[in-house]
Design a protein around this nucleic acid. Sequence first.
DNA 1: GTAATCACG
DNA 2: ACGTACGTGATTACA
Length: 448
Amino acid sequence: MHYLNVSVNKKFEELKDYEVSCLTYKLKNLLKSDLEKFNQIKLYNEIEIPLLKTLAKMEIEGINLDVKFLKKLSERTTNELEDITKEIYELAGEEFNISSPKQLGEVLFDKMKIISNPKKTKTGQYSTSEEVLNELSSKSDLVKLVLKFRSISKLLNTYINSLPKQLDKYTNRIHTEYVQTVASTGRLSSINPNLQNIPIRTNRGREVRKAFIARNKDYFLMAADYSQIELRIIASLSNEENMINAFKKNEDIHASTASAVFNVPINQVSKEQRSNAKVVNFGIIYGVSAFGLSNQTNLNRTESKQLIEKYFEKYPKLKQYINNQISFARNNGYVETVLGRRRYLKDINSQNSVVRGAAERNAINAPVQGSAADIIKIAMINIQRKLSKGNYKSKMLLQIHDELVFDVFKPELNEMIELTKNEMEKAFEINVPLTVDLNYGLNWLEAH
DNA sequence: GTAATCACG
DNA sequence: ACGTACGTGATTACA
């Protein structure tokens, strides 16, 4: 939030001044992109401009960070990283820069020759990506250690040591900046710092989430996220009744899909079947291919192909919708979301099948991802209006694509739960119910 | 400045 | 026969 420092001084009561400079700054940014859009005036006036003020308030509000906790975590983690570094040097028989993919590749594949035919990147370097290393880790302790080194140094450099440095010197809180103009689907992005990629998938990463805490002892941190919003949207857009009914019955959607494609009762779906069905459901949103599917599962390409065929047999309208989207894009040069947000696809009629294929996947994905973005934007605008009007002490702080995070003043808790859930679920009506999971606690991890 | 890698939805 | 999952941002190394 650099404009905060440039524009005014320290007093937080001068919120109005902050707001003005914030709006001006962002408006410029937005107008520029408006020129590139066409026939998007309604969207601009009814969504993006009102959202501007909502985002400004969130940015100015910021979020509290537990610096003491991060400091302790940093000490522990740094020690661990040093130990691992020594072990790696010992196994490698030399010291080198483990953070250099080039040097690491030379150690693993030239010196130690742990595999005969190493994968290369497009520039001809050895690939040492997580995916490659994971396959080699079973036969090499060195590779195992490198993977551990990578994950720890990522957490340390990007989050644990970096976030405390980005506390605002006047508010002592973390103020991200939301950008409305970079994501081609209509999503927001978050920068300086990015608070939309705070770790959650690993136990070690989850520690970082604990550092995001409520304003003070009178507050909880509350998180509300849409359940399966993208899948619900594509079910609705395609009018695929088999999927719509599963959502209406509030079934576990991946189990329901598995039950359909593997022909077993839903309560007898195996873990593996559910997991494979989940991958296809995700794949559908991205624009499936047998290759992509086999990459993500233990299935080979033939099995993947059969699974996709079976899937479309059970969800025929989905198949039809995908074909319709592609032909709409071919005829019109763009696709659009539920609010008419367009994504132009200049490569949709390309002679090059690789380039065209990518555009076709965009034609499927953009309306889905973009409609989800539209819907949460409506919810945010409406929630902010209610919070302002009602003079709530509770504040909306963060948006993470399908999730909103709040500082909730404890006496307002019940009211806030109701208000948030309600505004999110009724933000925009589609052919399936939208449901929101909501939790609260002392920190962001507890709020999940 | 670009490439590689990896954090998230 | 060929090459492929969608959307982002930050950090590090290296030319």
